[in-house]
Amino acid sequence: MEDNAKMEQFQQRIDAGEKIEPKDSMPEKYRKQLIRMISQHAHSEIVGMLPEGNWITRAPSLQRKLSLIAKVQDEAGHGLYLYCAAETLGIDRDELVQQLLDGKAKYSSIFNYPTLTWADIGVIGWLVDGAAIVNQTMLAKASYGPYSRAMIRICKEENFHKRQGMEIVATMAAGVPAQKKMAQDAVNRWWWPSLMMFGPHDSDSPNSGVLLKWKVKTKTNDELRQRFVNLTVPQARAMGLSIPDPNLKYDPETKNWNFGEIDWDEFYQVIKGNGPCNEERIEARRKAHRDGAWVRDAAAAYAAKHADKSNVA
């Protein structure tokens, strides 16, 4: 049982816009929700390296290859910032990593779709990182200090990802008909999964209420999704690409781009593990973890050996 007075006090701090720090008193449910959310976010960054890493060896030029390597390295860094933020809540990174390897942890459903062509790399930067920025700009204001600080750091770097993606897409969209067709095909495949990244409708989102109350989030899934659509549709038009939604229509009154219904069956299937690449992604993570074991062992052995020496001296 949580002490009512303490709960009240906590809510007052939140309402006053104060940031909660690791050693502060907090409701157990707040801690649990944050661990769930931050670790899922961290896993998403780590798994997010895989669909793109897939194209590093096949990038069409040296410059594109350098950019893609830098972007993938950033994703690894973002995963690390977030695991650190989760650890301040009293959980070990090892435990979180193990949950991912065991297939027990959730991560963003978007990374269970395959990257079939080079255009996918552009579209991922533009749409997937674009959607992530909309979400993360909000999370940079989250009430939990370490999460908010990690997000601020990530947002600063994420803009490069979006811009490099947009440049790839724009270049292809302005290219020969085959390139333009390839870009449009990638948009067609990634558009709906990108909208799904914001999660279920507010009415079907079990965690939204408490996250808003505690200002972990300050906007709802549907609000963020609408903001993303409003930002992205004009960009697509400027590049001469179409959005695969016959119901997309501008409403001059609300200044929103209204869009069609998302295929929620597909969303829940992918979340349950039945997406096109779920197994492949986790297996790739397991292999990377196994293949890296000797590096971790060697570093630990080296550190132990030198620690012994310094004790003797």
Partner: peptide
């Protein structure tokens, strides 16, 4: 309300926290 638990368990391979 709960306080932060700082893990003191030996690390399983990733090394200490810095």
């Amino acid at each position: 309300m709960s306080e932060q638990k700082k893990s003191t368990a030996p690390d399983s391979g990733d090394g200490a926290l810095w």
